[in-house]
């Protein structure tokens, strides 16, 4: 156990937690976009930045990846944190003006309109879908392609892939609703990156699976 201070509250937490986990365990809210308890922390959205107060000058650290240690002092709502979070939200709002989640979160911080040119895109590249597909499903059907502002989530070779088992996990974890499931023939659903293959009955267990054939 280590003793830490978050927003003036002295708390004692297990030493293998991150700041975010410690805060949430103690009912302190920190907003996140690229974080999911079931996945390894990624540290990309920068919404969960908190201020790590120290004598040599404070700095902003992502609470989802930063481990707690004895005696650290953390502020989740300092002026610095709010200012930075607002600007990150303003950037996201311009990138994804159609996303409800971003809009609501931005509004919560008083960001109504972005000062940057709006784009038509809903994906914030938080990587939840990519990581879920890899870490939970194990299918690795999608990954990041290209870099910088050209980065996109795509299947290998940018074409529909048999690796996608159409489990829908990516759709579930996506915070902005950027990944659509297209309804096909009532029972089967299909991702934009799944190859055309149908639901088949497994000879062994008897249940139905999406597969090109066993």
């Amino acid at each position: 156990m280590v003793n830490i201070t978050i927003d003036g509250r002295k708390i004692s937490v297990s030493e293998d937690l991150t700041i975010l986990e410690a805060a949430r365990e103690n009912g302190i809210q920190i907003p996140t976009l690229c974080y999911n308890e079931a996945l390894k922390p990624y540290g990309a959205c920068r919404i969960c930045l908190v201020e790590l107060v120290s004598e040599n000058g404070s700095k902003l650290v992502p609470s989802c990846t930063f481990p707690v240690s004895e005696g650290i002092v953390v502020r989740t709502d300092s002026e610095e944190v709010i200012k930075t979070r607002k600007m990150v939200l303003e950037l996201l709002l311009a990138d994804c003006p159609g996303s409800k989640v971003i809009k609501e979160l931005a509004e919560e911080y008083g960001v109504k309109k972005s000062r940057f040119e709006e784009e038509d895109n809903n994906c914030i590249l938080c990587g939840l879908c990519v990581r879920a597909c890899d870490e939970i499903v194990g299918a690795r059907a999608i990954h990041f392609v290209d870099r910088g502002y050209k980065m996109e989530v795509k299947p290998p070779f940018l074409t529909a892939t048999v690796n996608c088992i159409k489990c829908g996990t990516c759709t579930t974890v996506c915070p902005t609703g950027a990944i659509k499931l297209d309804e096909l023939s009532g029972i089967s659903v299909m991702h934009q990156w799944s190859d055309k293959f149908s639901e088949r009955r497994c000879n062994v267990c008897g249940s139905f699976h999406f597969s090109p054939g066993f």
Binding site: L125, Y149, M151
Partner: peptide, 21 residues
């Protein structure tokens, strides 16, 4: 730097691009 940003985190990917704009 806009071209060379890896694209992972929002401030670098999006922020540098907006600065260039």
């Amino acid at each position: 730097l806009e071209d060379e940003s890896c694209g992972k985190c929002v401030p670098c990917r999006s922020g540098i691009r907006r600065m260039r704009e």
